[in-house]
Computed example of a mutant assay.
Amino acid sequence: MIFTMYQVDAFAENVFEGNPAAVIPLETWLDDAIMQNIALENNLSETAFFIPHKTGYHIRWFTPNAEVDLCGHATLATSHVLFQHLNYSENEIQFESRSGVLTVKKEGELLVLNFPASKIETQYIPPNLKTAFNIHPRKCYKGRDDIMLCFKNEDDIINLQPNFIKIIESNARGVICTAPSEKYDFVSRFFAPAVGVDEDPVTGSAHTMLIPYWAKQLNKNELLARQVSKRGGTIHCKHLDDRVEIGGKAITYFIGEINF
Rank of each mutant, 00 (worst) to 15 (best):
M5E: 10
Y6I: 06
N14G: 08
V15Q: 14
V15I: 15
F16R: 10
F16M: 12
F16V: 12
F16W: 14
E17R: 13
E17D: 13
A21P: 09
A21N: 02
A22Y: 07
W29P: 03
L30D: 00
A33W: 03
I34L: 08
N37Q: 13
I38C: 07
A39E: 01
N42L: 02
L44I: 15
E46N: 13
F49M: 02
F49G: 00
I51C: 03
P52N: 00
H53N: 09
K54I: 12
Y57I: 04
I59H: 05
R60I: 13
R60F: 13
W61N: 12
A66T: 12
A66L: 15
E67F: 13
D69Y: 11
L70N: 00
H73I: 09
H73S: 05
A74S: 12
T75L: 09
A77N: 01
T78G: 09
H80R: 01
L82Y: 06
L82E: 03
Q84M: 06
N87P: 02
N91C: 05
E92T: 13
I93W: 02
E96R: 08
G100S: 04
G100W: 01
V101A: 08
V101P: 05
L102F: 06
E107L: 09
L113Y: 05
F115N: 00
P116Y: 04
P116H: 02
S118T: 01
I120M: 08
T122N: 03
T122Y: 00
T122V: 05
Y124T: 13
I125P: 06
P127Y: 04
N128T: 08
A132K: 01
A132L: 08
N134F: 03
N134S: 01
N134R: 07
H136I: 03
D146P: 14
M148Y: 11
C150Q: 05
K152Q: 07
N153S: 06
E154T: 14
N159E: 11
Q161R: 12
P162A: 04
I168M: 06
N171M: 07
A172W: 13
P180T: 01
S181T: 10
K183E: 15
D185V: 10
D185M: 05
F186L: 15
V187P: 12
S188D: 02
F190P: 06
F190E: 09
A192S: 14
V195F: 09
G196Q: 10
V197D: 00
D198R: 06
D198C: 11
P201Y: 15
T203M: 08
A206N: 00
A206C: 01
A206D: 00
H207K: 01
M209S: 00
W214F: 03
K220L: 10
N221K: 15
E222F: 14
A225W: 03
R226S: 15
Q227I: 02
V228N: 10
K230P: 02
G232C: 06
C237D: 08
K238D: 08
K238P: 05
K238S: 11
H239A: 13
D242E: 09
R243M: 02
G247P: 11
G247H: 08
K249D: 09
I251A: 09
I255K: 02
I255G: 04
I258L: 15
F260G: 05
